[in-house]
Structure formats: structure tokens, C-alpha cells
Amino acid sequence: MSETTETAERTETATDQPLETTSGETEEQVREEWREYVFDGRTKLAAEDLDVYYGDDYALKKVSIEIPEESVTALIGPSGCGKSTFLRCLNRMNDRIRSAEVDGSVRIDGQEIYQESVNLVELRKRVGMVFQSPNPFPKSIRENIAYGPEKHGDLQTGLLARLLDRSDEDEREQLVERCLRDAALWDEVQDRLDDNALGLSGGQQQRLCIARCLSVDPEVILMDEPASALDPIATSKIEDLIEELAEDYTVVIVTHNMQQAARISDQTAVFLTGGELVEYGDTDQVFEDPRSERVEDYITGKFG
């Protein structure tokens, strides 16, 4: 309890005084500047004035950002800054948390996702998600991959389908192989597709979760610190995979690890305490020449 109030106070002092930035501009001017940040490519996701509260606490404050397609966008910032909350707004997983209230707009390909008649099934098919710690289902590897398409009725493999000879088993095998290959896991597990997925190592489990996510042909893949629970070797495999995925998918990744963000992302957005998006731009620019002094402090390790 007391900790949150403390954070809130700290935020207030941080926002009340317009901090001097490196080039002598006020924070407001910096924000104006990066708002005009132009990237190559089409806008895939756009958030506008997005506010999220948990009860009385702000988790996100007036976040506006446009994310280009087929690239990797990293969201970095200290813990509790709202970057994960923002990520979960993009496929409405925040709906699961009853106390969370979302205000503002998020559009995917220009279509608003915070409106009454949005089909959550369709939204989450298009915007897949990979979680912080690997969460395979307690089923076989094959069933894990086929789960989404089966539930969406795109694959018929149930008992009834088999009885009626309508089973899509060949399609399922192709799908399983394609997704596992895309997730760079096929070579390791092709002989044991019927084994329980919980028997895989942590890194393999996470790649399985990525493969599972690919099975419904998403357009966007959200990743919430996907490598934070893994060892360095597994992490580097996941990082390579992310870079490959960015050729076909729009990847948005939350990470604690600034080196990781610098290595793999094309754009970087920096959130600071209080749920504010403080800076957004090309990764090289954000890391080498940040416009905001607070971001520079954070990146060089003075703050956060």
C-alpha cells in the first residue's frame, strides 16, 4: 500500500517540473518532436491518448504511439512503468483484470479495438501473445500447436470428425511442422510430438509457445519479456527467432534488458515511472542520442 503512494508522489514531482533536456528543450517540446517521428512502412498499430487505471492508480497516462508493420518494436522502462499494461491493451488481455479501466483508442489497421461490437476471438487471432514465463498447455506438443486452429474450427480432428471421415489430420501434421520449423524447434522435437509439452526445457517451452502463437496466422505478435526466465543460450536463440519473425510479422516486445532491445529492435519506446511514454524513435537514435534527459539517465543507468 505505502509503496504505491510513494511511487505516485514520486511521479508527481517528476511530471510537475518540466525537466531540462540535453538540448535545453522542455519535455513537452521533446514529446512534440518524437510525435512527428516518421518511420518507413505502413502503420500497423496505433494507440491514441490511452489511459489505464487500476482503481485509482494510473497505470498508463495518455499514451500515443504508432507502430509500423513487419518490424520489431521494443518497449523498455523500469518495472512498474506500465509497459506490460500497454502491451496487454493491444489484444485486450486487460479485460481479464476486472479492476482495470481503459480509456482512449487503439487501432489495428485503422480499426478501433475498444468498441462495443469487437469480436475478441478475431482480435486475438490477429494479435497473438507470448508470455513472460513459458506457459505450454499440459498436453502433447502436437496438441499444443493444433489447439488454436481446432478451437477456431479451422481444423477438424475430434472423435466425431474422425468417425465421419472429415478429419484434417494431414493438414494438422503440416501445420504442426510448419509452425515448429518457423519457431526453430522442429529439429529438436520432431521425434516426440506426442510427448507432454511440460517435459521440454524452458527455452524449448518458450519456442513452443511462439510456435503455438504462429499456428493461427497472427499479424502481430506481442511478447512480454519472453526471455526473462531463460538462460543466455536459450535467450540468444529466442532473439534470433524474433529477428526472423519480424520479416513476416509485426513484433512488439517488452523487455527489461536494454542490450536486448538495442540488439533486436528497429524502434524503441521508453516508458518511465507513472505510465508515461517518454520517448519513441529509431532504436539507434534512442540509445545513442536520446532527446529526453530522463531517458538518457535511465539508459546510462542513473535513474530507474
Partner: peptide, 10 residues
Amino acid sequence: MKSGSLAMGT
């Protein structure tokens, strides 16, 4: 586990 399933759009 439940979130994982819901995030698949079920």
C-alpha cells in the same frame, strides 16, 4: 495457462 489459451482467441 488460462491466459495462454485466451490469448489464442478462444
